[in-house]
Amino acid sequence: MAISVLLSFAEGNAQTKNFRSESVKIYGNCAMCEKTIEKAGNLNKKATVDWDKNTKMAIISYDSLATSKGEILKRIALAGYDSDLFFAPDDTYANLPECCQYERAKKKAHNMESHDMQMAKDHSHHIAMTQDKNALSSVFEDYFSVKDALVGTDGSLASNKAEKLLKSVSEVEMDKLPMDVHMVWMKVLKDLKVDIGNIVATKEVGDQRVYFKSLSKNMFELIKVSKLETPVYYQFCPMADGGNGANWLSLEEGIKNPYYGSQMLSCGKTVETIK
């Protein structure tokens, strides 16, 4: 006991001796920011940060032998908050809660750039699909949206997209289909509707994936006879469905597994390219 008191006394003494305090500007908005900034900056017995949301100024005090102003501001920037020494990573900033989306200190140039790129990509994606004059094109397009939602493990989005797919399926004008496509269409139509209906009915991703497996199988037969202009990749993950394996269709050659999402995003391989 006596020793520990002595120790803490010695420690306290050392603290005051090497402790330095400075006032620095840290960009931010609200009380929530304050919490994040201080939590990121504080380091047990080595650094404390006290940020004022009105002045945007922080008092940082730290043991100058153990740490530095740079280290503290770096941690705060990595939590999403700019200072005069460090800019926060763009993705970290973007992931801050809405109330914390403060006016940044830095120019937005390459933020915009990445946004533009994203837009351009979406756009080209769209064109590729609409160019295809196939009578089933909206069915395929909606199927890919469902698949993308499952890749993102987003059950409610998948359900929404499936509803759209169901609508597209029922709007197909069968008599406009070529003979061979029509035959397959007749064969798979009933199962398609059941599987899609089941996906619409639940928001549970795990269940949706079960139906997605047989949906994909039927869709594959359909796409194979429909002869699209853009290549479609028939892909397979041997681990899906409890090790039984499952297929899906994708417009990209790169693997993005709808049965696992982020868990095993790149698990799988292309087994057939349909051109």
Binding site: H115, Q118, V151, G152, T153, D154, S262, L265
Partner: peptide
Amino acid sequence: VMYPEVTGSGDKKMDHKMDHENHTMEANA
């Protein structure tokens, strides 16, 4: 396998996020 690369990494907080954040996450993918 060992870390999330896209949205919905089993992280429930994701559902409350705003549109533009989903954008950046999509960019991640």
